[in-house]
């Protein structure tokens, strides 16, 4: 999504030409690698008694 700036104006095009985007396949691969990194980071949280945690999250209804 385009930047929503405080001025409420969309960003103007930079004078510098943007670097060409990587080919889609390479981009997907990079993103998968980054997702893997994030999943690795929270692996401990997910391993650590997820069932009890999920069951323990009981609220009352709101609006």
């Amino acid at each position: 999504m385009e930047q929503i700036r405080r001025s409420g104006l969309p960003p103007r095009d930079d004078d510098e030409p943007a670097a060409p985007p990587p080919p889609p396949a390479a981009q997907t691969q990079t993103q998968t690698q980054m997702i893997d990194d994030i999943l690795d980071q929270i692996d401990e949280v997910l391993e650590d008694s997820s069932a009890a945690f999920v069951r323990g999250f009981v609220q009352k209804g709101g609006q």
């Binding site: 990194d37 994030i38 980071q41 929270i42 949280v45 997910l46 391993e47 997820s50 945690f53 999920v54």
Partner: peptide
């Protein structure tokens, strides 16, 4: 699986466990 459900809760969690900051930092 509870671990998958826990992952979706982490998506909405605030603080260091929450995923939003990590996803934003990685441009995801």
């Amino acid at each position: 699986d509870p671990k998958v459900i826990r992952l979706t809760l982490a998506y909405h969690q605030l603080g260091p466990v929450g995923l939003r900051g990590k996803l934003e930092a990685a441009d995801l």
